[in-house]
Simulated assay, not measured.
Amino acid sequence: MPSDSPEPARPALTAGRRAFLGLLAAPALASLPRGATAQGMPEWLAELKTEWAVFRGRFVTREGRVLDSGKGDESHTEGQGFGMLFAAEAGDAVSFDKMLDWTRRYLRHSRGNLHAWRYRGDAVDPVSDRNNATDGDIMIAWALMRGADLFARPALAREAALICRDILTHCTREVAGKLVLLPGMQGFEKRDHVVLNPSYYIFPALLEFEKIVPGPQWRRLVADGMEICCNSARFGRWSLPADWIEFYREPSFQPRMASSWPTRFSWDAVRVPLYLAWARQSDNPALKACVDFWHAPGQRTLPAWADLRSNTLAPYPGHAGVQAVANLARASRDRNRRMQELPRVAQATDYYGASLILLSRIAWQEARAGAPIV
């Protein structure tokens, strides 16, 4: 599908987004340097553009494929969505269009509006698994929404709405009186339980989807997700969310850590406090538990992961992306606290760490804008 325009100008913002950006500029909420550049651009936006340029140079091909450098330069819908979101926020319409066009061409399902989750450039069949990853589809739809607003291209919002409707149809289920978000269309529904990934609940995105697909289902999905993944399903001595959990069809059964995955708070679950902070859920118990774990008295480094069954820690520290999320989570718990300097994309050892750094940077600008949005 061709792009609407090769290089659209940045439009006047909608009233809601204009108000949002005005809140971001409130002096009482300042943390990261927010002066104006010589060109009158807010310093945070100038920094975001610079950081995005580094990310683009390291991980985005000329064709618009985002490379997961930690997994043999595979590409995923998660990465395509991240890249499109970063490009939209940085005002880079050319890169946005390239990533969107590549995603449509290689990952979009021929029937429906969801996407195959992985592309392997070195394989005979680069897209051998047509199952989707729900978090990737959510991120793509969210990036399209923001592109529609920032680039004044309503067709992108209509495309996002089609994805959102398919997410509701194919990736949500009623289980034990809760509306749950399946990680994909296939493979996660068992006889007596469903398998869930708490980090796939991108809370701020799910709430924004109500604007393009009206209805109560989004807020219910968020409320039930927070109840399951952030209140009920926390484990180990630190009471942390796990990467993967099992949620049972029998209402009296409590969620458990998934038996087919490591029982860890690790590379997936690190996004739970990120999305909670982004949704301004400063009092959420899962967010508090993560802050307490990362910033325990006497702890010199941030562990890369914690095993929630054995209560043991990784023997090596988390990378710069974990540091970024930990800084964001701690600052979001206390509005009087200044955000510690976030790591730079150049400090990230791989694509995922760089993504967490940029996500944390955008989340902080938005999360400090006001009251909780749930």
Rank of each mutant, 00 (worst) to 15 (best):
P2Y: 05
P8H: 12
P11L: 00
R17V: 04
L21M: 03
G22L: 07
A25P: 04
A28S: 06
A30H: 09
P33E: 14
T37Y: 06
A38S: 14
Q39N: 15
Q39V: 12
G40S: 12
W44F: 12
E47W: 05
E51I: 04
W52L: 11
W52E: 11
V54I: 11
G57L: 01
F59I: 14
V60C: 10
T61M: 09
R62P: 01
E63R: 10
G64V: 07
L67P: 07
G70W: 04
G72Y: 08
E74K: 07
S75P: 02
E78M: 01
E78D: 08
G81W: 05
G81S: 04
F82D: 09
F82K: 06
F82Y: 15
F86H: 09
A87E: 01
A88T: 00
A90N: 04
G91N: 01
S95H: 08
M99H: 04
T103D: 06
R104L: 14
L107H: 07
L107M: 12
R108H: 13
H109M: 14
G112Q: 15
H115F: 14
H115S: 10
H115C: 10
A116N: 13
W117Q: 13
W117K: 15
S128C: 10
N132A: 14
D135L: 13
D137Q: 13
M139P: 03
I140H: 10
L144D: 00
M145Q: 09
R146F: 00
L150A: 00
R153T: 11
R153L: 14
L156W: 13
A157L: 02
A160K: 04
A160E: 09
A160Y: 03
L162V: 13
T169D: 15
K178H: 15
L179S: 07
L181Y: 01
P183S: 03
P183L: 10
Q186R: 12
G187M: 11
G187I: 11
F188H: 13
D192M: 07
H193N: 14
V194H: 13
V194S: 08
V195S: 10
N197A: 10
P198V: 13
S199F: 03
F209D: 00
E210Y: 00
K211G: 00
G215E: 10
P216V: 04
W218P: 03
L221Q: 04
V222N: 00
G225R: 04
E227K: 07
C229I: 00
C230Q: 10
R234W: 07
P241I: 01
F247H: 10
P251Q: 07
S252I: 11
Q254V: 08
P255Y: 09
M257F: 02
S260E: 15
W267N: 13
R271P: 08
P273V: 03
P273E: 08
L276G: 05
R280G: 07
Q281D: 05
S282T: 01
P285I: 03
A286R: 02
A289L: 11
W294K: 09
W294V: 05
H295Q: 08
P297Q: 05
R300E: 15
R300F: 09
T301A: 14
P303S: 01
W305M: 07
W305F: 15
A306F: 03
A306R: 04
R309G: 02
L313S: 01
Q323T: 15
Q323I: 10
V325Q: 05
R330P: 06
S332D: 10
R333N: 02
Q340Y: 02
L342C: 02
T349Q: 13
A354L: 10
L358K: 05
L358D: 02
S360V: 06
A363H: 06
W364R: 14
